[in-house]
Design a protein around this nucleic acid. Structure first.
Lengths: 222, 222
DNA sequence: TAAATATTTTAGATTTGTCTAAAATTATTT
DNA sequence: AAATAATTTTAGACAAATCTAAAATATTTA
């Protein structure tokens, strides 16, 4: 009795899942940008996905995946990441070339196929980009944390914890508008004093000291 | 510069390829039956495929794949059979369960992917059903011939040659409407006199003698 | 070869996913 | 809180692939 979704519907579900995870609050324009389509088309699809019980949606008041929708999204993410693993580990592709192929393969339906593939690959926990692979039940391992000083340049990441429990640190973080969950990228690393330039979504880039960077841990994002 | 075909177009090309191979002369109704659609839809698609130079087509006077169309068809067959091989050999599926999955996988586009898959599988020459797999250049090994007396019951096959060059045999074959290319299945084998009951497409089943069966060689079909 | 039958094609409608342009609603400024 | 700006939704149209019913053509039969 598995519900059936078109490739287009699956792409919407996946896009909303990823944007929601990154942003919390997602709008039609963001979804449209992600899928190279227009806000009007997104609205049309929102209505359909609401009817299919995949979305909570009240018009003009936003939308979010239902628990069923989240389950479907995890299934697609699982397929995507397992195929990426297969392409890199078995077919010897570079991890930079596999995304587009996995976008196609993830819509091949059979759950039995993907479960057998999972076994064949040895039930890997992370895909070649370091993203966790959901298991048969949709559970996935938490992303390993990385110190901000070790984050590769331009890698999108999310602040996940701080290494020091001090009021002084908290004050500084507050001033720089950094908090748990803040998304950032490292833009430059300066050898002289090990300071780094970071960029937070919607803000101008700015530089933080080595001491501060060492106190921050992040999770890499897709 | 690879031309781009929709999944639907690819399915038409593949269906026409298979029917043409089996039948020589193919009509819209046959294609419609193969694809679970209607003759009118087939006509629409024929026009489109003619425009794309995949088909030779004059309305009311039949159609056949162009050499370009044949090349495309072979590419699809190659994908289909390599995926079937993968599913059976690597993922441990039974060869009776893989057809539907391969139908989906064959439309995943990248040629590079399929060539790497081919290498990964060790460049197999036959799929799990015994059908030959076209290589990178579309070449495939000819199907081994089987004597009709050795053909398993219900296996679809095509008469490929006769073992005796006699007028008497020819007369009999003509009368029974059997020729090179005729598609048939063995329906029953009678132990008493080793006669067998065969069924030719569009005809009622009938019985042929052991002597006649021994004179006929067939190629197994998909 | 003319009539009957079968096949193929056209005409017009339907569904899915998309678009543009305009209208409705919500959010932000001042 | 009005005015302005941004976002979201509707209305109406379009392309792809399909359908049904009717018309055109080809084939078979008598």
């Amino acid at each position: 009795m598995e519900a059936n979704f078109s490739v287009t519907e699956e792409n919407y579900i996946k896009a909303i899942y990823h944007l929601q995870k990154a942003d919390g609050n997602v709008g039609t324009n963001e979804v449209a940008a992600e899928l190279n389509t227009k806000a009007a088309s997104v609205t049309d699809m929102l209505k359909k996905l609401k009817q299919k019980k995949v979305l909570n949606y009240e018009k003009y008041h936003g939308f979010s995946l239902s628990s069923q929708g989240r389950k479907i999204a995890l299934g697609i993410v699982r397929k995507h990441r397992l195929w990426e693993f297969f392409l890199v580990e078995k077919l010897q592709f570079g991890w930079d070339e596999v995304h587009a192929m996995a976008e196609e393969l993830e819509h091949v339906s059979s759950k039995k196929l993907i479960d057998k593939l999972d076994d064949f690959l040895g039930n890997p926990k992370f895909d070649p980009h370091g993203d966790p692979i959901p298991d048969v039940n949709g559970k996935m391992v938490a992303l390993p944390q990385v110190n901000l000083t070790d984050l590769p340049v331009n890698q999108q990441a999310q602040v996940s914890s701080v290494g020091i429990q001090s009021t002084a640190l908290l004050e500084l973080l507050k001033h720089k508008q950094i908090a748990i969950g803040t998304q950032l990228q490292v833009k430059k690393q300066f050898a002289f004093d090990h300071s780094i330039e970071i960029k937070i979504k919607g803000h101008a880039a700015f530089i933080i000291s080595q001491q501060l960077a060492q106190a921050l841990f992040v999770q890499v994002m897709e």
